[in-house]
Nucleic acid binder design. Structure first.
Lengths: 213, 213
DNA sequence: CCACAGCTTGACCAATCGGTCAAGATTTTT
DNA sequence: AAAAATCTTGACCGATTGGTCAAGCTGTGG
């Protein structure tokens, strides 16, 4: 039972504890919401005394802000696949794959984001108005190019994007409902594969995507 | 300024106040979450003293439970259209219309539901396991019949349903994000029509829906 | 018109929460 | 090895919250 006790340096301690706290905070905020989560509960999940949290993050709001920002950056990265593609089948297909993977592996992050946006984005409104808006316009331009190239039917790109977000994030945000309707069991590997496949097939077929020759 | 003061009878007073409180509660729970909403704030929105809320609803949780239950019943009603249809184009099309309409008119209700499910349904888990499960199985059977009749491609009906829920509810739950990406303005009538039309077209085309002759 | 049942409300309370603080432990720097 | 900087933590505090209560108010049925 002699666990190798931390020979940790200062920087290591800081990094390790911040990570521990951020993980506990993400989970707790996702499960209880901002108002329902307490610093004491987050501290318990992280295995640290409450006063220690306030040493690293002065206020509950600053901790929450950091959690939401981190999630947002993970989301943005997931979209690089989008650009490297020659057409909608490859690009949108890979994007759906990536977002479904995130929904499966990190549902808590998705829930915190959803909760933040549902409450009118009190802490990340500026991100919505700058980074997200720019990102969205960029992808819309890509989709419009595909349409012009005859690689897909002329559908409204903005609403297509919303549909992709809605569908993929639904598997994270509503995972409890989906589990309940799956007889209380989490989706198996095969079920996740079928979900991803169904989503891809309906959307790609729905927009009349054609392979880039 | 002499507002016709309540000649109200006992029953009328009760109905009127309960409705007032439930409306204020739905709005407040949607905006702040269960933990973030306070009885005092709900009372202010309703224009009643806080102690009066506790007269009609003994605890915050009982008020919240009532709000969620009411929303759930509205949702179930919206699906009657589903059954009366001869095929997917008519049935799913009408269902999408109905749910988009609800998302536009009552976003608060959708948000409360989403929040409840995201937090693992602490108060309506039994509904998920009974009513929602039965409802879902029923609709899956309808869709499977359409597939057998050759009215649409053989897609997994369960994931198709999730896709419908995800997409339509997204316009309510994430209305703030959508508004922000629309230059801070709510969607116009025309934009709502285009959203609904795009969703219907992609999905109905995506599942290869054919008219019932 | 009177007695009773239902409705209203300001004042109040115990519990909990976010946040503070000072004293001690540990590592780094000089 | 001593001084400085950083990290840890139990005890504590003011503010807020959900909920209570008793006294007064208002329809209603006899």
């Amino acid at each position: 039972m002699t666990t190798q006790h931390r020979p940790a340096s200062r920087k290591e301690i800081r990094q390790e504890n911040e990570k521990l706290i951020l993980q506990a905070a993400e989970k707790t905020f996702a499960e209880a919401g901002f108002g329902g989560a307490t610093m004491q509960l987050i501290a318990d999940v992280a295995g640290l005394p409450k006063a220690n949290l306030h040493y690293y993050f002065p206020t509950k709001e600053s901790l929450y802000r950091r959690v939401v920002q981190d999630i947002f950056h993970v989301w943005l990265q997931a979209a690089d696949i989008f650009d490297a593609a020659d057409g909608p089948i490859e690009g949108l297909g890979a994007y759906i794959d990536a977002k479904m993977e995130i929904s499966r592996k990190h549902p808590a992050g998705s829930k915190v984001w959803a909760s933040e946006v549902m409450h009118r984005a009190p802490v990340i409104q500026d991100y919505l108005e700058t980074t997200l808006r720019d990102w969205t316009e960029g992808r819309i331009a890509v989709i419009e190019r595909w349409i012009d190239q005859g690689l897909m039917d002329p559908v409204n790109p903005r609403h297509l994007l919303y549909m992709l977000w809605a569908t993929t994030q639904h598997y994270a945000d509503f995972n409890h409902q989906i589990e309940t309707l799956n007889n209380g069991r989490p989706l198996s590997d095969a079920q996740w594969a079928e979900a991803t496949d169904t989503v891809k097939r309906i959307i790609l077929s729905g927009i009349g995507a054609r392979p880039a020759t």
